[in-house]
């Protein structure tokens, strides 16, 4: 089940049903994200969070926490998990599943191309 509550500071475009075909977007250099942290990107009407784990793994998810709309890019990341900064809901970054609650985040394939982050929307 995917759900995302509208929050006061963003709506991340989950209700946009347009553009069903997948396309890749270059988000710029990896160095923008310090090791172990996440940053948010507004792209194609939605806000996604990209996480750069210290072991080099990259993850991309929707930025909006399905609980109360917390900005996940500001969360603590480690061991394939992100913790929302508002109420500490935890999400598995591989699957998007919330740990302990029956909700999930949308995840996006992401890879590194010539030092740049490329996400598939």
């Amino acid at each position: 089940m995917r759900q995302c509550l509208p929050s006061e500071f963003e709506r991340n475009g989950l209700w946009d049903n347009g553009a069903p075909e997948r396309h890749e977007v270059d988000l710029g250099p990896l160095d923008f994200i310090p090791p172990g942290e996440g940053r948010a990107y507004r792209v194609a009407g939605r806000t996604i969070a990209v996480f750069r784990q210290r072991d080099g793994c990259l993850f991309a998810t929707d930025n909006c926490c399905p609980h109360r709309g917390g900005p996940l890019a500001d969360g603590i990341v480690g061991g394939g998990v992100v913790i929302c900064p508002l109420h500490a809901w935890k999400f598995d970054l591989h699957t998007g599943r919330c740990i302990g609650e029956d909700v999930a985040l949308r995840t996006y394939p992401v890879r590194l191309v010539n030092g740049c982050i490329v996400v598939e929307l």
Partner: peptide, 8 residues
């Protein structure tokens, strides 16, 4: 940095 605007 806040959310980075990527050229749509």
């Amino acid at each position: 940095a806040g959310p980075v605007q990527i050229d749509s």
